Structure formats: structure tokens, C-alpha cells
Amino acid sequence: MPSLHANTGMQQIVDFILELDKLKGVTRKVRPLGLDRYENSAEHSWQIAMLAASLAPFAEPAIDINRVIAMLLVHDIGEIDTGDTMVFAESGWDERKAAEQIAVERIFGVLPEPQSAMFLALWREFDEGKSAEARFAHAADRAMPVLLNLANNGQSWRENGISHERVVGRIGPPIQAGCPAMWKYLETRLEEARRQGWFGA
């Protein structure tokens, strides 16, 4: 018969997973292909985890791809409390990160140990962006909205007045640092998009 402690731990895990359901209600600025609505942060997290797994052959040889995927699955969980901020926003990042820190401590705190500490450590590793895994995760995170915009004729760039220079300046360095092959691919595609007028003024 399960112990009371085991039941308590199971309930904490269930409570955590149900809390994560709120991430499905956090709206982003890019539309899924072929749909009129905007994507949500849960969809984004799943898709970039799949992108990173697919890009594994282009990662540094010693990278732990499972750790990368875990980071990508937890990296936006704080948005349950803070909402999403478009990657091309030019101010307020320090305040946002402080708010996200409080949010993830609350949300991961629902879990028992050691899961709580493990997920929080993954979130912090991604946030600091220093390890090879974190750099690769950042590259996938930055690349996915670009790939959707390229497939959607620059939808969110045009809607939000985002220039080619702003896109390249914001996403170029982290993608180049984490996955140079992806940046080489995107650099050409972004120049083609600029020529086609897919950016805002």
C-alpha cells in the first residue's frame, strides 16, 4: 500500500503539471502556419525542443542534447505569471528577468525535492547562457520565431514594425554562438526576406 509520503509527492507532481496547463493560455506574437490565431508559449516550448533535437547533428560534439531539451521545456514556465515579451523588445529586460525568477521559484516550488531544485537549476542555466547546452538551447529558442516568420511572409515583423536590422541584431549573436550552421542558413534567408519587403519600417 502506498505510503502517505508517496501520495503527497504524487499530488505535488499532479499539482505542478496542472499549473503548467496555464502556459497554454500565454499568447505570443507569431501565428502557427495556416492558422488565424497566435501561438501560445506551451506550443513554442514543445516546438523548440523538437527543433533542438533535430539540430543535434549540428551541435558541439560533447553537448548533452537531453539537457538542452529539458532546458527548453522549462525556460518559459515563468511566463505563466509574467506573460510573454516579444524577443525584439528593446527595454525592460532586467525587470522581466527579476519577475520571471520569482515566478519560477513559485511554480517549481510546487514540486517535491529533488525535482524542484533540478528544474530550477535548468532554468537558471538557460537564463545565464554560459554552458554549451545553454548556448545551443538559446539558438533554438531564437531561431524558431524567425523560421515561422519566414514561412509566414514576415507576419509578426510586419505587424509589429520590426526592421531587418533589429532582427539580425537581436537573434544573430546568440544563434551564431550556439549553432553556427543555423545562423549561416538564416542569414541568407533573412536577406531574401528583406529584399521581399517582409520587415516593418
Rank of each mutant, 00 (worst) to 15 (best):
P2H: 10
S3N: 13
S3I: 10
L4S: 14
H5D: 14
A6S: 14
T8D: 09
Q11F: 10
V14M: 09
E19G: 01
L20A: 07
K24Y: 12
R28A: 12
V30C: 04
R31F: 01
L33R: 15
D36R: 13
D36F: 11
Y38R: 11
E39F: 06
N40F: 04
E43R: 14
E43W: 13
H44F: 11
Q47T: 07
L51Y: 03
L51T: 01
L55I: 00
P57C: 02
P57K: 04
A59R: 05
P61L: 04
A62P: 00
I65P: 07
I69T: 10
L72T: 02
E79F: 03
E79R: 15
D81P: 00
T82K: 05
D84C: 11
T85R: 14
F88Q: 12
A89R: 13
S91D: 14
K97T: 09
A98F: 01
E100M: 13
I102H: 09
A103P: 06
V104N: 03
E105K: 15
R106F: 00
I107R: 01
I107V: 11
F108V: 09
V110K: 10
L111N: 03
P114R: 06
Q115D: 09
Q115H: 10
M118H: 13
F119W: 09
L120S: 06
A121S: 14
E125I: 01
G129S: 12
A132Q: 11
A132F: 03
A134E: 07
F136D: 01
A143L: 06
M144S: 04
M144L: 15
M144N: 08
L147G: 02
L148F: 14
L148R: 12
A151E: 09
N153A: 14
G154C: 08
G154E: 09
Q155F: 14
S156K: 03
W157I: 07
R158I: 14
R158H: 11
N160Y: 14
N160S: 12
G161I: 02
E165Y: 07
R166Y: 04
V168N: 01
G172H: 03
P173Q: 06
Q176L: 11
G178D: 03
L186V: 08
T188W: 00
T188H: 07
L190C: 06
E191Y: 00
E191L: 07
E192L: 06
A193L: 02
R195F: 00
Q196D: 10
G200V: 08
A201N: 15
